[in-house]
Design a protein around this nucleic acid. Sequence first.
RNA 1: GGCCACGUGGCGGAGUGGUUACGCUACGGAUUGCAAAUCCGUCUACGGGGGUUCGAUUCCCUCCGUGGCCUCCA
Length: 475
Amino acid sequence: MALRLYNTLTRTKDDFRPIDPARVRMYVCGPTVYDYAHIGNARPVIVFDLLFRLLRHVYGDDHVTYVRNITDVDDKINARAASEHPDLPLNEAIRKVTSVTEAQFMADVTEIGCLAPSAQPRATEHIDDMTAMIERLIARGVAYVAEDHVLFSPGAMNAAPGPRYGSLARRSLDEMLAGARVDVAPYKRDAMDFVLWKPSKPGEPGWPSPAGIAPLGRPGWHIECSAMSMAKLLAPWGGGLTCDDPAKNVFDIHGGGIDLVFPHHENEIAQSCCAFGTDVMANVWMHNGFLQVEGEKMSKSLGNFLTIRQLLNDWPGEVLRFNMLRSHYRQPIDFTLKGLEESWKLLDDWYGAVGALEGAEAAPTVVEALSDDLNTPKAIAEIHALDDASALAGSLRLMGFLAESPAAFAARRPRADVDAAEIEAAIEARLAARRAKDFAASDRIRDELAAKGIVLKDGKDPATGAAVTTWELKR
RNA sequence: GGCCACGUGGCGGAGUGGUUACGCUACGGAUUGCAAAUCCGUCUACGGGGGUUCGAUUCCCUCCGUGGCCUCCA
């Protein structure tokens, strides 16, 4: 069954063929660890986790390498560290902020059903790779030193043969210049030049600079992904700066949010392609659409800024995950309470239908839907069409659901403020009244419980035929 | 201002140049002492206006609306 993926680079949906048929290599831009991740951040994490699971299903669990980086060098981290731990030396405060935030992120995404990537490199662990790459870019004439900065020149890149700057975003340099709104730093030769390395301010974290620059410095944002993808996805297979074979310096899939297309991914491509002499950095570029909350863009000023952690207080992680996958990953998504309720109901139904089935296989129809550029709405429709509990369980597991027992999932419904024994007693009294055909009393008891939000479900014991009543809290 | 997406029935949400996706809700039936739950069934759509076509929700143009990006912001 062919896997087809939409490629932002070509704007077409094509059959996916890994460079190494036995080894799929994927890189996804991960979080900047300065604060709780919000639900918008969760979208690419969930989407590419699903792709990771599908690739493992198709190619085998041990034949997919998924790298998701952690950005731990950033101005926002510095600012947060300074304001949160004013008593500590900045570097220590930064370590504290990044380690706490990273642990929180991992806990959050684990709870929404995401497998750990094969590797999660931190930017600070790959500074040497970045400076080596920067040296290479200078040597190749596409980067230059100015006032202790190192800048990449898209103009120089486009003056040479090879890939064009702007081909991912489909914008020419002229168009970008025409749209530029921001003041151009004086040390730049050209407005489009972007920073590879910059000097650290006093007190900021700093590392030995490349290109003979004396002061300590720190990397620009884009170079880290070029360096870390090289270290984790090229070097282990013979690629990297010491390899002069362009064919070994390309990996399969690069993913992230659609807002990263420009400038982040465009710049990554420029850096990696110029450093390695390749035409592409990765063969397939995948981008997930943007997320809104209750029809509005999420922002702190609107007061609708939802962190994953806040949502997990009220909703099971699988409900958040399902709600996210109800829309196709490239479409915009509107995250709403109504949608979460509906998602929870469906998961409840499925948990009930599946029971305690173990080790089931996914339905071919579901795998096929997912193989068509992760068409999750179609996959969900196919799940609805299944009449076999085993295929249902297998299909849901493939998508990262059913991680807990039906009982554990059912217990996630809030019922803290009700007295179960009291309700059971009322139910017994009602059953007695019904047996006595005292329906007025029976209905009164039911109404009283309903007023407390308790819904009764009448049934029969399949063996004895005796009346049995269960209850749950109204949603 | 420039560039780029998206706009489907009460709601969510796929898809397609001509034949009811699917789900939730609502409604009808079965069931029930009556309900709830369950099962069966039913209804409503393709933002506005032009164009191409035998035929467009699907292609093209335009307008409106929403959103994204435009050099360090996920």
